[in-house]
Nucleic acid binder design. Structure first.
Length: 414
RNA sequence: GUGGGUGUAGCUCAGCGGUUAGAGCGCCAGACUGUGGCUCUGGAUGCCGGGGGUUCAAAUCCCCUCACCCACCCCA
């Protein structure tokens, strides 16, 4: 019979790998708490329309990468392809904008996109994201980027550069698009077919094209940064100097644009030396709350691609030392079982296979599995009301009496 | 969605029309009855990814399919 396998693009996170994830998540939670961010959990399933209205009806994400389906009542639903839309929806639905001036949220969870699977790209992937609502000041942008920087840093990936650009407010964007189209239209014939398509649907994205001829054509093209109004220009300057003041590595990338429609103003990506893909990215989206039927609330946020980040870092977690218990004889086994419970209550990690095998055999197994501490309990020890703790690396042994065993073992191994 | 590569033992891979499909590592047993990593001896391994075809004969050639990897695309 054919065996059942994980669905294409989906994968199991097995314990060995999860250790890295959990260790990172622990540090991330602490960091986020210190910046005053609160966790929010939104459903994996949303109305399809939510993403059409936020991510953008013409974007690839919405037109060809969403998992959509009808439920039994014929509702058009979708597995979320990203996190921001849901958080904005929840923020509006819970009326946070009436309760307090500034709201800071973070989330972590699976997102779904029907992409072709590749390294660091899965159909179910994980993002840790951050969103701030109610703040217009450029310091919010800086705060959020600093947080992104330090979060990524805490994973052990330290060769980070923030690529920074500013797309301008709605008015700047409108003005600039006119200029850009006037420039590109006469040269459209020289662009690749992907870019021809982008021209109509998502003009800004032509700057992302890696095709050499397109790059050549766009060499002379007007850039969004040069068509900013005075207010946007000032804001951009403040963001840039703010990041520099923190000593973060920043690269001003005048050609940086983003794939989601909702970005306005500041946009940024976290790049590492080893990867061409960004490991985290985000930006300001001051008009999104309105697009989803709410009041105008300025907001800024980012998301970290955890699958990519975890593939990059070699996190070493400080785990509890493992104590492997070995019992010789039935009496020792019975008494030992109680001893293990006692040690666990002290917070120690102890395990055993309960098997009746020669001591040599047990030690060999432990040695192969790189277990550092063995607990040995046989008749000899039982008669003296004690047991043996052996360090497999130094080969030293310690005799410990049952009385107050937990504390003594703890001192020894921790 | 487009193009290319790879699927053989638990792992890394060799075999590329012709005996019963191999190596290294790992695994199991023994030498060695309460003290391990070394050594020696012996042992088990497999729908050769799946389906179809060509052939006297297919892991090997052809077609289809599935999965993984790489690049594009997309994006974090």
């Amino acid at each position: 019979m054919e065996s059942v396998k994980a669905v294409r693009g989906m994968r199991d996170l097995l314990p060995e790998e999860l250790e890295r994830w959990q260790s990172f998540e622990e540090k991330a939670r602490q960091l986020l708490a210190r910046y005053g961010y609160q966790e929010i959990r939104t459903p994996v399933v949303e109305e399809k329309g939510l993403f059409e209205r936020s991510v953008g009806e013409q974007t690839d994400i919405v037109t060809k990468e969403m998992y959509t389906f009808l439920d039994r009542k014929g509702r058009k639903l979708a597995l979320r392809p990203e996190g921001t839309a849901s958080v904005v929806r929840a923020y509006l639905e819970a009326n946070y904008f009436q309760k307090r001036k500034i709201s800071r949220f973070w989330y972590l969870g699976p997102m779904f996109r029907y992409d072709r699977p590749q390294k660091g790209r899965y159909r179910q992937f994980y993002q840790l994201g951050v969103e701030v609502f109610g703040g217009q000041d450029p310091f919010f942008d800086v705060e959020v980027m600093a947080l992104m920087f330090y979060l990524v840093n805490s994973s052990g990936v330290t060769d980070l550069t923030i690529h920074l650009n500013h797309l301008g407010c709605a008015q700047c964007q409108h003005n600039y698009l006119g200029v850009l189209q006037k420039f590109v239209r006469p040269r459209a014939g020289f662009l690749c077919c992907d870019c021809q398509r982008r021209l109509a649907s998502n003009t800004l994205r032509i700057f992302d094209c890696k095709n050499e001829r397109c790059a050549e054509v766009l060499e002379e093209a007007p850039l969004p940064g040069n068509y900013l109004c005075q207010v946007c220009q000032d804001r951009y300057e403040k963001v840039h100097t703010g990041l520099k003041a923190l000593g973060l590595s920043v690269f001003e990338d005048k050609r940086l644009v983003r794939g989601l429609d909702y970005y306005t103003g500041t946009v940024f990506e976290a790049m590492t030396g080893r990867e061409t893909n960004a490991v985290a990215a985000g930006g300001r989206y001051d008009t999104l709350t309105m697009a989803l039927g709410g009041p105008a609330i300025p907001a800024v946020g980012f998301a970290i691609g955890l699958d990519r980040l975890m593939a990059l870092c070699s996190e070493t977690s400080s785990k509890l030392p493992v104590i492997r218990a070995i019992f010789l004889g039935e009496e020792a086994r019975k008494r030992g079982f109680l001893l293990l419970e006692e040690l666990r209550r002290e917070g120690l990690r102890v395990e055993t296979d309960y098997e009746e095998r020669p001591l040599k055999n047990h030690l060999q197994t432990a040695s192969r599995e790189k277990v550092v501490w063995c607990l040995i309990l046989g008749e000899n020890e039982l008669n003296r009301e004690q047991f043996v703790i052996k360090n497999m690396e130094t080969r030293r042994q310690y005799e410990i009496s049952f009385n107050g065993a937990g504390q003594k073992v703890k001192e020894l191994v921790c």
